[in-house]
Amino acid sequence: MAERNGSAAGKKPAAAATQPILKVDGVTLQYKTKEHLITATYRVGFDVYPADRFVLLGPSGCGKSTLLKGIAGYMKPVEGAIRLKGREISEPGPDRVMVFQEFDQLLPWKTVKQNIIFALHNGGKTDTVAEAEEIAMEYIQKVKLTGFEDTFPHMLSGGMKQRVAIARGMAMEPDVLLMDEPFAALDALTRLQMQKELLQLWEDTHFTVLFVTHSIEEALIVGSRILVLSPHPGQVKAELNAHHLNHDNVGDKKFAKVQQHIHDMLFADRILEEDVKPGARG
């Protein structure tokens, strides 16, 4: 956070002068299954600016999760480039921390606190245990899990596990926080709660987050800017603003209009192909 705040502080007044932190440029991603070579995204390009809550939105099979994995460095683009702060991404690294949908992203053999310390220690964020412990406790408190720091993950509910994962990701103070449908496996009430908490956390530090979802509503609530992707393979359909929308707008006219607009954009040409790659998301 220190470096990000530092660099942003100097250019604070002139928004136009702010440079994108992440540039995705004409990226095509492909992966192999046992029998097939699949093109997940085709020449996708977009810029993410500091403090963006940037949402990748699209139906199943639009390659949005694959795109996130590309940004995280798990996959190499076959064409195009992904640059973080000007450097081309070549492998996974702690400057882009990922929060997954799956609950098993927490290491089951480590307690809540140890999970965060594990990240801080191996990510090279801290040198001493005491320092790591202090940061871990700070973020545990931020996600309202004080009292659970010595609990093993299997004792936690789904929402609590996702909170730990978010705390672990934020404690790393990455350049971008990558969130791959982090609330998709939660029940509706918990999801609502988690969206609100995420926005509150964002207000504290204005961290940059890249958020993948297939829910138009969630995209509008959580996101400040939305990239709409077409399915199979993923291609850019539109980039829209949503910074003026949040929970309070759900159900009002403005919200419904944008929602309907995106819906039409995605489903007008009826290319929703659920069977592109069974079992895989995005």
């Binding site: 705040n5 942003a8 604070k12 928004a15 136009a16 204005h206 980039e239 603003n241 910074h243």
Partner: peptide, 10 residues
């Protein structure tokens, strides 16, 4: 001191 959202055209 927090970075501000950069509003760009859609």
């Amino acid at each position: 001191l927090l970075p501000k959202l950069v509003i760009r055209p859609e």
